[in-house]
């Protein structure tokens, strides 16, 4: 299973993205990070830490569960409902620029669900999308504003993002077969 990004590469990529955020937004005023559960949340928190190191400022960070907004929710042929987890956005998103963070961008449907969910929370001034890996094959007109790595893939491959916080190691692996 080819390792596409190792721990070191992931760390440097996140640092680079953090700098891009600061540059593009001219600082971190009015910014907030919202990670899409589950791994997006950990990536968002890491970015928040790095942004604090760079600018000295705290960027509010929240966690978004998009299960109830998925477009495939009631269409499973067989099998379980996805487990719903808590959304925790302990700040107002009105008039903020929201940095939506996810691990892999693929069809774009998760992002669409996340946008719907966010809009129900308030009216942000803007939403920018940060992904660690963009593996192509979009089914909706969605584009990431910040991409860690562009990874061309075949539809029968899957991209597995492992993070220390959930999987005890940092790496991105490209696998033959599988869902993602």
């Amino acid at each position: 299973m080819p390792v596409v990004m190792d721990a070191d590469r992931i760390a440097r990529t996140l640092t680079r993205i953090a700098h891009e955020i600061v540059e593009r937004n001219k600082g971190v005023d009015d910014l907030a990070l919202v990670g899409v559960r589950t791994r997006g949340v950990h990536l968002a928190r890491r970015l928040a830490r790095t942004l604090k190191e760079i600018t000295g400022d705290d960027v509010p960070t929240g966690a978004l569960d998009i299960t109830l907004y998925r477009d495939d929710l009631m269409r499973h042929a067989v099998g379980p409902q996805p487990l719903v987890r808590r959304t925790e956005i302990p700040f107002s998103i009105d008039d903020r620029k929201i940095l939506l963070v996810d691990d892999v961008l693929y069809t774009g449907r998760t992002t669409r669900a996340a946008l719907d969910a966010l809009i129900d929370f308030g009216r942000p001034r803007g939403i920018q999308l940060i992904v660690l890996v963009d593996r192509g094959h979009r089914e909706l007109p969605i584009k990431a504003d910040y991409v860690g790595k562009n990874l061309p893939t075949a539809p029968d491959q899957s991209v597995q993002v492992c993070l220390q916080e959930t999987d005890n190691r940092d790496e991105v692996v490209l696998q033959q077969g599988g869902a993602a």
């Binding site: 899409v36 589950t38 791994r39 997006g40 996810d102 691990d103 892999v104 961008l105 693929y106 069809t107 774009g108 449907r109 998760t110 899957s158 597995q160 993002v161 492992c162 959930t166 999987d167 005890n168 869902a179 993602a180």
Partner: peptide, 8 residues
């Protein structure tokens, strides 16, 4: 789309 990859 990021599907939850289960390794633990």
């Amino acid at each position: 789309m990021s599907a939850p990859v289960i390794t633990r």
